[in-house]
Design a protein around this nucleic acid. Structure first.
Lengths: 348, 348
DNA sequence: GTGAAAGCGCTAACAT
DNA sequence: ATGTTAGCGCTTTCAC
């Protein structure tokens, strides 16, 4: 077996086409790329031949010859952490699907890459596989590294729009999202709020920062932070412990993601409290399950679903030497049951 | 910008190493691959140099030279279907993460590929990108095509273990899984059962087939099938309509996936019925949300989580010319609230 | 044990 | 408008 790429399976090469068309190899190359000269008639003949035989240029050879590859790397944490099977948040997978789709449409190859510990390792990796650009799904705590990498490689990052960043970021307007939640809590006269999520993560920090602004001036109140990662189990445990440890429960929880919000709600119920009567809960991302969950989750959502295609557009621009500016996707609050809003759709 | 792969960013080549080590290029190549001859001392010196300079062989050049690539394609439907945003089932994304992880550990490159309509197109695609094997996540209704493709390319498929298949399949023991549900329904004295899911899909057909066997002999009863795809929304709508159309509701629903089960439960509740008191519901896959969902979902789960690494192991074998046999992963029933079982863990 | 030579499939520079 | 020549970085003969 061991089918390598080329040569195996009756694969057609440019040399074959050249023979068939009675022209030289470079002419075939030119015709196929619709280049300048080449007699229209010749081009037509060659392209017809190519189509007929299902010719596809060997990407390896093109890459070797120095041509900018039509290949983009997508970087994210797919490493299930050993036993715990802590897979990425559902939102990231959604985004991955959208990005992959946008790349496919443009006829680009998609390489999945794990996180690396240094700029050099990323460069090596991208260079090794011949990717002409990379899309990072989440900063993953590598902001400084990314600043550096961006000066040497075309990258775009889904994540928080950090003010000092010199690389191109596409992200939810985390600050406004957080502020909307803060305002909602202020309007709902919440007195004691718990923020669930790790503020060391860039996006989470901005969400919580926005919250503080929106919630400000709501009089006598307290805001505590419960720093947890992105896993459902960890959040569930932490919220449960926190509820037991406190003299009285919070009356509002803002979770950094919908997944964490669902974990919090479960913990709340297990202590006998009722959502939203005793505690109002709001999440972030509006993942598909948010609507499905009981009680349906109040959450923050982007106003359009262009995240995936935007990331791809931007990386194409940078790859082509065009400056691309960061984009903050506007957000809105979806009111559902978990904050006392209406049910997602009227029961029959 | 337009950084192609090689040549840009001070990338080290074998020629550079050869110069540094004072040997010829082929010697470097041999040393790095731990090949036969090569004086141990020479090899050590070269490897040290390579490490020091962070040398990584250019995959394109290796591929071009005819070497079996260390690259595997993963095929699945990531195309969100236009407006509907019908993304793949959560289970597939879980599996994708596991497979990607297993490949990364083995230092293989991962290419994401969409479905193609024909054997030829798959061959072209794999050949173009230089993948030396492919993993299909789900048959996707392409059983015949896959039979054909497998004779020409190293592939492994996650899916149903169809009896006539000549290609290597790794899959849940769908038949037994279905049978367990059937037996559970029989034991629970269900009289009127609705199967939700499209039996044209290979895996679903086997699950329902197993159900029939397990449920058989439970006396006077009826079993209807509601054929729907894999989307939550579609299933929700279909179940709702079905419930309204029937003279009396079923007392048991077996959904082909957990996602469909959740949709069914929502529909059931919207008609005023109670799960599990009026209708018992069982799903399939034990996705993370199954535990979280309210009521927690009774479902079928594989006994171990080796699916991802098994798929990778198998494709490696086939790639290396070794025959690999299909594997049916044993399953068991997880009893939770949706079928009247215990809550996932005791409330505090 | 190592080097010299050839070539994988393609594209860019220079002919014509 | 097309052909000729050279070479990307690597591996595989075949010499020595």
């Amino acid at each position: 077996m061991v089918r390598s790429n080329a040569s195996s399976s009756g694969r057609i090469t440019m040399a074959d086409l050249a023979r068939l068309a009675g022209v030289s190899i470079p002419t075939v190359s030119r015709a196929l790329r619709n280049i300048d000269s080449v007699l229209p008639e010749t081009r037509a003949r060659i392209q017809a031949l190519a189509a007929e035989h299902g010719f596809v240029a060997n990407a390896a050879a093109q890459a070797l010859r120095g041509r900018a590859s039509r290949k983009i790397a997508i970087v994210f944490d797919f490493q299930s952490a050993g036993l715990g099977r802590t897979s990425p948040d559902a939102f990231i997978f959604e985004l991955l699907g959208d990005v992959a789709h946008a790349l496919t449409i443009r006829d680009f190859e998609i390489a999945l890459c794990p996180r690396e510990p240094s700029t050099e390792r990323y460069e090596q990796k991208f260079s090794e596989i011949g990717a002409s650009g990379a899309i990072f799904l989440g900063q993953g705590g590598q902001h400084d590294l990314l600043q550096n990498l961006a000066t040497r490689y075309p990258i775009v990052v889904w994540g928080a729009l950090l003010p000092d960043s010199t690389y191109c970021i596409v992200g939810s307007d985390n600050f406004t999202g957080g502020r909307l939640v803060g305002e909602e809590f202020k309007a709902g006269a919440r007195k004691s709020v718990l923020l669930v999520g790790n503020p060391e993560t860039e996006q989470v920090r901005m969400r919580f920062g926005g919250f503080a602004v929106g919630f400000a001036g709501s009089g006598q109140n307290t805001v505590d932070t419960l720093p947890v990662g992105f896993s459902y189990e960890e959040a569930h445990r932490a919220v449960l412990e926190s509820l037991k440890a406190r003299p009285k429960p919070p009356d509002g929880i803002f979770a950094a993601t919908d997944t964490l919000a669902m974990a919090a709600i479960r913990a709340i119920r297990e202590t006998g409290l009722v959502v939203p009567d005793d505690v109002v809960v709001i999440g972030y991302n509006n993942i598909p399950q948010a609507q499905t969950f009981e009680p349906a989750l109040t959450t923050i959502q982007e106003d359009d679903h262009r995240a995936g295609s935007l990331l791809v557009e931007k990386v194409m621009q940078i790859r082509d030497g065009v400056r691309a500016s960061s984009v903050s996707l506007s957000v809105s609050l979806i009111r559902r049951l978990s904050s006392g809003g209406p049910a997602p759709d009227a029961p029959a």
